[in-house]
Simulated assay, not measured.
Amino acid sequence: MNIALPIITLVVGLIGGFFIGVYYLRRQMTTMQNDPEMLQKVAKQMGYNLNGKQMQRAQQMMKNSNQPGRAPAAGKRQGRKGK
Rank of each mutant, 00 (worst) to 15 (best):
L39C: 06
L39A: 15
L39K: 04
L39E: 04
L39N: 04
Q40F: 02
Q40M: 06
K41I: 06
K41S: 15
K41Q: 14
K41W: 04
K41P: 05
K41G: 09
K41D: 13
K41N: 12
V42W: 01
V42D: 02
V42T: 10
V42Q: 07
V42K: 03
A43Q: 06
A43S: 13
A43C: 08
A43L: 08
A43D: 09
A43G: 10
K44N: 14
K44A: 15
Q45A: 14
Q45E: 13
Q45M: 15
Q45K: 13
M46G: 14
M46P: 02
G47W: 06
G47V: 15
G47A: 14
G47P: 10
G47M: 15
Y48A: 03
Y48S: 04
Y48C: 00
Y48H: 11
N49C: 03
N49M: 08
N49I: 09
L50S: 12
L50Y: 03
L50A: 11
L50V: 10
L50Q: 08
N51D: 15
N51S: 06
N51K: 05
N51I: 10
N51A: 07
G52E: 09
G52D: 12
G52A: 13
K53E: 14
K53N: 08
K53R: 08
K53T: 10
K53A: 12
Q54D: 06
Q54V: 05
Q54T: 04
Q54R: 05
Q56F: 01
Q56A: 10
Q56L: 03
Q56H: 02
Q56C: 02
Q56G: 07
R57T: 11
R57K: 07
R57P: 00
A58F: 01
A58Y: 02
A58S: 09
A58L: 06
A58E: 04
A58R: 02
A58W: 00
Q59S: 04
Q59L: 03
Q59A: 06
Q59V: 03
Q60G: 13
Q60I: 01
Q60A: 15
Q60F: 00
M61L: 09
M61R: 12
M61D: 07
M61I: 06
M61N: 10
M62L: 15
M62T: 08
M62P: 05
M62S: 12
M62N: 09
M62R: 03
M62Q: 08
M62G: 08
M62V: 10
K63N: 03
K63L: 03
K63P: 01
K63D: 02
K63E: 05
K63M: 05
N64R: 10
N64L: 07
N64C: 02
N64T: 08
S65H: 00
S65Y: 00
N66C: 03
N66G: 12
N66D: 11
N66F: 00
N66R: 07
N66S: 14
N66M: 10
Q67N: 12
Q67E: 13
Q67V: 12
Q67C: 02
Q67R: 15
P68W: 14
P68H: 15
P68C: 10
G69Q: 13
G69R: 14
G69A: 13
G69N: 14
G69F: 15
R70Y: 03
R70G: 04
R70D: 01
R70V: 15
